[in-house]
Structures are given as structure tokens and as C-alpha cells.
Simulated scan of single mutants.
Amino acid sequence: MNDELAYTCTCADLEQTGALASQLAPLLRAGDVVMLNGDLGAGKTSFVQAVARALGVTDDVTSPTFTIQLTYESGSLVLNHFDLYRLDDADQLYDLGYWETLEGCGVSFVEWGEKFPDEAPEDYLELLLSANGKGGRDYRAIARGKRANQLLFNWVQAAPDAWHRLGE
């Protein structure tokens, strides 16, 4: 595998997004971090909700925009969900126990992680989401680190017809 894998995928609707997320969910393990970046309304929270369902989370998964972080323990893996949109300064991450959570016992999804690029972990999967104007979503997945490379490679293998290698 290369040092940095990058793939694109298009989902026509929420059903396809759910299928894509359900292919990622069983590949996740404690300590994995997925950074979700994209404009407002791009579908970041919808993607996390679909992963949560696939992990068996029975709680109502909502956007943590105002609470900054929500943790769900009812699934097969603890799911931490951050939304950094309302934070103004990287120092606020320390007050939240951000690093302890990322390094803890669950998988972490971080919306708006691009706000604080210097605070990104060394190893994470970046997922850039955008509405494509046809009611669907375009995804660009970029692996940043060894574990993220393995995770993305396995995800692409689980859905080879959905993904296209960036640059091909």
C-alpha cells in the first residue's frame, strides 16, 4: 500500500450512504479516527448516524453542534462524535478532553476537524463530503497514516464498485 491512499465515491441518496457506512462500520476498531469535512448540509452527521446504526447503536444519534461531543456506548464499539464548528480556539479542545477521547476505547468521528489542522492526530481517515446538486453526496476519502491506509484499503475492498482511485 502507498503512504497515502485517496479514493472518491458518489452516493445518489441516503440509502446508498447507509450502505457505504455499513461497509465501513465492521472495519472500525478502538482508536480509529475519522475526520469529516465539508460544507454545512454536506451530510456529515447523516454519515455518522449510518455508521452508528451499522454498529448497533440504539440511541438517537444527533448532531453534537451545541454540546461539541456525544458518546454512544450501546453499539458493538463505543462511538465518539465531535462537532468542532462552534469552537473558536484549539485550546478549547483540551478543556473537552479531546485527546483522551481520541486515544480512548472507542472510534471517534470528528466533524469540522479542518478548523484545527495542527490538532489532527498522526493517523486518521479524512472524509470530505459535498452535496453534488443531484440530491446525492460525493465522498473523497484520504488515508493519513498507517492504520488509516489499512482501514481505507479494506473499505475499498468491501465495496470495490463504489470507489475510484483518485487520479485514475
Rank of each mutant, 00 (worst) to 15 (best):
R140E: 14
K134Q: 12
A131P: 01
N37P: 02
S74M: 08
Q150E: 15
V34G: 02
A148R: 03
L96C: 04
S22G: 15
Q150N: 11
G145F: 12
D39K: 12
F47Y: 11
Q16T: 09
G136T: 11
Q23A: 13
L102S: 04
N2S: 11
W99N: 10
D83R: 06
Y85N: 00
L5P: 01
S63E: 03
L84Q: 06
A90N: 05
L125M: 02
Q16H: 11
G136W: 11
R86H: 04
S46A: 12
T71D: 07
A52T: 06
K44Q: 07
D83W: 05
T45L: 02
S108M: 03
F116V: 04
Q157V: 12
E119A: 14
N37Y: 00
D161F: 04
F82E: 01
L166S: 14
G167P: 11
E73D: 12
A90K: 14
T45E: 01
Q49C: 02
T58F: 00
D13R: 06
D89P: 06
G56E: 06
L24S: 02
D138S: 14
D123Y: 04
L14E: 15
E114T: 04
A30H: 03
I142A: 09
D89N: 15
R86N: 10
M1R: 07
L102E: 01
Y139E: 01
G136R: 12
G41I: 12
M35K: 00
G31Q: 11
D123V: 04
V33M: 08
A143L: 06
L77R: 08
A158T: 10
N149T: 07
Q23I: 00
G104H: 10
G43D: 01
G167R: 10
G41L: 09
D13L: 05
C9W: 10
L40F: 11
G75C: 08
Q150I: 12
R29D: 07
M35Q: 11
D39Q: 15
Y7N: 03
G75T: 13
W155C: 13
S74E: 10
Y98W: 09
D32M: 00
S46C: 10
T71F: 02
P121F: 03
A50K: 01
V78Q: 10
L70A: 14
Q157A: 14
L36N: 05
N132V: 02
L36T: 07
D88C: 02
Q150D: 15
L14N: 13
A120S: 13
L79N: 05
A120E: 07
I142R: 15
D60T: 08
E114Q: 13
Y94G: 08
V51Q: 05
A52H: 05
A6R: 15
S74W: 09
G106P: 13
T65A: 08
E73L: 09
G106K: 05
Y98C: 07
V78E: 06
L79C: 01
E100I: 07
V110K: 03
V34N: 02
A30I: 00
Y7Q: 09
K44H: 10
V61M: 01
A120W: 15
A42F: 15
E100L: 06
T58N: 05
G133A: 01
A6I: 04
